[in-house]
Simulated assay, not measured.
Amino acid sequence: MKARSQELVDKSIAAMISAIEVYNKPDFKYREETFSILAINAWELLLKAKWLKDNNNKVRSLYVTEKRLRPNGKPYKHAKVKMTGSGNPFTHSLDYLAKRMAEKKTLADAAHKNIIALCEIRDSSVHFYNKSGLFAVRLQEVGSASVRNYAKAAKSWFSVDFSQHNFYLMPLAFVKNHQPSEVILLTKEEKNVASFISSLEAANDPKADYAVSVNVELKFLKSKADDAIKVQVTNDPSAPKLQLTEEHLKDKYPLNHKALSTACAARYCDFKQNQKYHDLLKPLKADKRYCHVKKLDPDNPKSVKQEWYSQAIFNVLDKHYTVKG
């Protein structure tokens, strides 16, 4: 008979595989929303399995308790398990478990922040709606990192072997055709979520096993392998279109130097564009979490370069300046 924790692991894996299979369908109208819902479900079951394992498979460790009063108004000596409307025990939420496990260093900080970002996308999808193709790109960056983090955690905690599964998200270019004009159609709500995700990306460490988000790149290389995917370049307007663009970088790195300085002046009461400011920016320019360096002419190696900064840079600057009250 399987332990409860292992039963939860099996259910969790089934949920994540379902999320990936739905996402990778070539024509699915509720792709990002469905993936985020199922992926969150997979993470919650995995964390509950780990929690049970660390608590000797005592299912009560997952129950939410509350203090209750006796009929005479005096409190019971021991807290009681909180019940749902159907009379079943309430179990701890994903937010609670992720926070507690991150505090105990059981769950990596980057993986925790990735879950927070994925939950924000899920909440935005469930409670309202998203319509921008650019927002779909941000979901893929967070979702791809989440799948990788999930596989790493499941293997580390339960020795799960994912070699029999295609455990990855297909590049957007293969599953969905986006129009270039979509880069300007972010709603206010979508901008808020995208900005929130950018702020979490400060926890990204290129050398770490876990990540808040990842950049998904698609490259075509010549190959003599028999099973290599064949691609033909054509000007046939009826041929399927594959769009490779850096437009989504404008969302991830929205601030040029002038805009960043203006934002700092509005954000901090003791900000000055002095040597201290330039010294702080210098090492951040080489960090992809905070800065993307773009050549004005990509084909010219001597082209003038321009730095574009992400919202995550404020997580660093906040430590050196006083935020206005």
Rank of each mutant, 00 (worst) to 15 (best):
P301V: 06
F220L: 12
K294C: 04
A259L: 06
T234K: 11
L244G: 04
L296M: 14
L242A: 14
L242Y: 15
L284P: 02
D227T: 12
A225R: 13
L284I: 04
D226M: 03
Y277V: 05
P240S: 09
L218V: 15
N256C: 08
P206N: 04
Q273M: 10
S195K: 14
N235R: 10
H278C: 00
E246T: 08
R267P: 05
S199H: 02
V216M: 08
N256M: 05
A263Q: 14
K252Q: 05
D205V: 03
N204V: 01
Q273L: 09
A203D: 10
P237M: 10
D251I: 04
R289I: 01
L249H: 01
D297I: 13
Y210W: 06
A266I: 00
L281C: 02
K305I: 06
K224Y: 05
S238T: 15
S238M: 12
C291E: 05
H257A: 13
K250E: 14
K276C: 02
S303G: 10
D279E: 12
P254Q: 09
K295C: 01
L221Y: 07
V293S: 09
V293W: 00
N235I: 04
K241G: 06
K276G: 07
P206A: 04
Y210C: 04
H278P: 00
V214E: 12
K230Q: 11
D226P: 01
D279Y: 07
S199I: 05
H248I: 12
Q273R: 11
K258P: 00
K282V: 00
N256K: 02
K250C: 08
S238E: 15
Y253F: 07
K295E: 11
S199L: 09
D279Q: 11
V212S: 03
T245Q: 04
Q273K: 12
H257S: 13
Q275H: 09
P298F: 13
P283D: 07
V293P: 01
K222N: 11
D209Q: 14
K272L: 07
Y210V: 04
L284Y: 06
Y253W: 02
D205H: 03
L218S: 13
K224Q: 07
H292Q: 07
N235Y: 08
Y210A: 03
Q273S: 14
V304K: 15
K258H: 11
K282G: 00
V233K: 11
Q243Y: 14
E247F: 10
H257K: 13
V193A: 01
V304T: 15
C264I: 06
D279H: 11
T234M: 11
C291W: 06
N274I: 01
K272M: 05
R267M: 08
L200Q: 11
K250R: 09
A259T: 01
N300G: 08
V193D: 05
A208P: 02
L255Q: 02
E246K: 06
D279M: 05
